[in-house]
Design a binder for these strands. Structure first.
Ligand SMILES: [Mn+2]
Ligand SMILES: [Mn+2]
Ligand SMILES: [Zn+2]
Ligand SMILES: [Zn+2]
Lengths: 136, 136
DNA sequence: TCCTTAGTAATAAAAATTATCCATAAGGAA
DNA sequence: TTCCTTATGGATAATTTTTATTACTAAGGA
C-alpha cells in the first residue's frame, strides 16, 4: 500500500483527488497505458477528464513519480518508479513482468558506457518473448 | 552500400522507387523517426506521400527489414536490421549510438529469461545519458 | 511488350495528444 | 476554522499523428 499523498508531496506535487485515483490504478495494474488508465478510472472511480490524465501523466513523469516504458509495436505504458529492474514483455498477451537483477544476472552496462565515453543516467532493458502462461 | 533492391526482395517485397528512397534515408541517418524521414525525402529526393512512408515503415518492420526503437520521451526511431547491438541514447542531442556487444560486455539476459520461464525472442537495451560530444 | 496485381498519391477520416480558459479545490496563512 | 492565493481540473477546441479509402500507376513476371 503506497501512501500516494506522501509520494506526491515528496515530489512537490499537490495531492489532488484525481492524481491519487490515477496512481491507484497504475499501482493496481503495475504497468498500464494512458487509454487504459482512463477506462479503468472511468469504470471504477468517478469520471476524470482524459486531458487531466494526460496532463498528470506527463507531469508526474517529469517530477520523477512515474516512468515511461516505451514498447515496440504498442503505446507506452507507465509505472510508479521503484528500484531498478528490467521488463519481460509478452508479445502474446502484452503482460509486462518486472524482473529485479541480482548479482547473478547483473547487466554490465556500466562497462559498455565507459568504453564509449558515455555518461550513463538511465538503463532500459526490455526482453520480448512469450510468458509462462502463454506458452501453454 | 546496401543493395536495397536485394534487401527488399529477400523479404518478399517489391523494390519500388519509394521504398528504396526511404531505405536510403534511414541508412544515411542510422536511426531516424518517421517525420524526419519525410522531411529528408522531400528535401533531397522527390516528394513522397507521408502515407506512403507510414505504410512502408509498418510493412518493412513487419517483414523484418526494419526494426523499431522506442525511446523514452520521444517518437520511435527506425533502423535497418543488423547484428544485435544495444543503443546509447543521448538525452541532450537525441543521437542514437550503436554499441555491439563483445564477450567482455555481454548481457546475460538468457539467464534472466530462463529463471522466469520466459521464452526470449528479442532484446532491447537502451542506455540513456549524455554522449561524448554533449559532455564538452 | 503486355498483363496482372500490388503500390502510390491524394485526401479524408480517425485516433492521439496538447492547448485554452473558466470554475474549483488544495494547502498555507491568519 | 476560515480565508486567500494559486495551482489544478473539466470541457472542449485545436493540433498532431496515424490509418483508411480510392482511383491511378508502376513493378515484375509471362
Ligand atoms: Mn516495471
Ligand atoms: Mn542501432
Ligand atoms: Zn503472455
Ligand atoms: Zn549528445
Amino acid at each position: 500500500m503506497i501512501d500516494y499523498a506522501l509520494l506526491l508531496k515528496e515530489h512537490q506535487l499537490k495531492a489532488t483527488f484525481q492524481r491519487m485515483q490515477i496512481l491507484e490504478v497504475i499501482e493496481k495494474y503495475g504497468h498500464i497505458a494512458i487509454e487504459a488508465i482512463y477506462e479503468e478510472v472511468s469504470r471504477i472511480h468517478s469520471s476524470l477528464s482524459l486531458a487531466t490524465i494526460y496532463k498528470n501523466i506527463v507531469l508526474m513523469t517529469q517530477k520523477g513519480v512515474l516512468t515511461e516504458i516505451p514498447i515496440i509495436g504498442e503505446k507506452s505504458k507507465y509505472e510508479i518508479i521503484k528500484d531498478e529492474h528490467i521488463h519481460l514483455i509478452c508479445t502474446e498477451c502484452g503482460t509486462v513482468i518486472d524482473k529485479m537483477l541480482d548479482d547473478d544476472t547483473a547487466i554490465d552496462t556500466e562497462k559498455v558506457a565507459k568504453t564509449s565515453s558515455f555518461s550513463l543516467e538511465h538503463r532500459q532493458v526490455n526482453l520480448y518473448g512469450t510468458c509462462d502462461h502463454c506458452q501453454s
